Simulated assay, not measured.
Amino acid sequence: MASTSIQTVPSSFTSAFSKPQPEYDVFLSFRGEDTRYKFTDHLYHALDSKKIITFRDDKELEMGKPISLELLEAIKKSRIAVIIFSENYASSTWCLEELTKIDEYRDRGILTVLPIFYHVEPTDVRHEKNTFAEAFAKHEKRFEENPKKVQKWRAALTNVANLSVKRLKDGEPEAEFIQSIVQWIYLKLEEKFSNDIEDDLVGISSHVEEMISYLDLESTDVHFIGICEKSGMGKTTLARAVFDKILNQFEACSFLENVREESKAHGLKTLQERLLCDIGKRGLRVKDEHKGMQVISDILHNKKVLIVVDDG
């Protein structure tokens, strides 16, 4: 049986970090009926196999329902947005709302965007031809009393479609195309992570290495590391930097933020379901806290896992 060690260390460094760390590496924007169980599913699992944390909305869109706050928050908390332009993408007002928000964060320089043309012609998207023209004609009629909404969608579509893109052509092997996307994202994330460390953190590198040494990653023991310091001194920043650097060495991982506030407001059951979502059990619900502990224990048994519990 693996032994357990508990250590407490001070964070004791000054952070110049001024913006929140993203929770997701990638946000996938797609038209469900076109690609949910085909291209998007294959891409999601290819990213997951590389330990790239990806947000994919698994819910079927209900007609007339506005875009959820969860989706808007996920876009805000992502590093890269991948937009899969498929035949019926523009027919979804939900997709167009996502697109508008993505373009807003891209314009502010806090989100990298990769458009993908999935069996559609780039000119159809950029110049609203064929199904894209048909979709906007319907939107203009439906929202004739609110033309500014359609104008915003149209502007976002044009802006994003004119970026450097990847295109899947008819007859091209889909598996190879997906691997090229994953490789592009992997390299871009490495670049962004390096820039984040260089631009936003002061004197953190040595502390990250020190923390990693306490974890003793080659060991099969269970390790608990506590970071103690006054509020605002960089505990979360240090924990996130360590987490991002070593997560690829684990079979499952989760970074649970603001656990004190979350547990008070919603109870431990909500935190347990967030953890289950992070380790690949998205949508799994637990009956109560005791059952949640049992389910988590069963799933993570004999696995090498990394869990960070942060109380803000």
Score class of each variant (00 low, 15 high):
residue 96 L to Q: 05
residue 105 Y to C: 05
residue 139 H to F: 01
residue 131 T to C: 11
residue 149 K to C: 04
residue 103 D to R: 14
residue 66 P to Y: 03
residue 236 T to Y: 02
residue 102 I to N: 00
residue 104 E to L: 06
residue 74 A to R: 00
residue 186 Y to M: 13
residue 290 H to Q: 14
residue 44 Y to V: 07
residue 232 G to M: 13
residue 16 A to R: 15
residue 31 R to F: 00
residue 259 V to P: 04
residue 264 K to I: 05
residue 268 L to R: 06
residue 22 P to N: 06
residue 157 L to I: 13
residue 22 P to I: 07
residue 54 T to S: 04
residue 152 K to W: 08
residue 9 V to N: 10
residue 145 E to G: 08
residue 202 V to C: 03
residue 63 M to V: 12
residue 44 Y to A: 14
residue 127 H to L: 15
residue 22 P to Q: 03
residue 202 V to D: 03
residue 193 F to I: 07
residue 192 K to L: 14
residue 98 E to K: 09
residue 65 K to Y: 02
residue 135 A to Y: 09
residue 122 P to Q: 02
residue 68 S to P: 15
residue 2 A to W: 12
residue 220 T to H: 11
residue 133 A to I: 08
residue 81 A to W: 00
residue 24 Y to G: 05
residue 231 S to D: 04
residue 123 T to R: 14
residue 20 P to L: 01
residue 145 E to L: 12
residue 129 K to S: 07
residue 175 A to G: 07
residue 230 K to W: 05
residue 164 S to N: 10
residue 30 F to Q: 12
residue 165 V to H: 14
residue 236 T to N: 08
residue 41 D to C: 08
residue 147 P to L: 02
residue 232 G to S: 10
residue 155 A to F: 09
residue 206 S to A: 15
residue 201 L to M: 13
residue 302 N to A: 09
residue 287 K to Y: 11
residue 176 E to T: 11
residue 199 D to H: 12
residue 230 K to F: 08
residue 138 K to M: 06
residue 166 K to L: 12
residue 94 W to I: 04
residue 132 F to T: 05
residue 20 P to F: 02
residue 208 V to R: 00
residue 43 L to A: 05
residue 310 D to C: 03
residue 118 Y to Q: 10
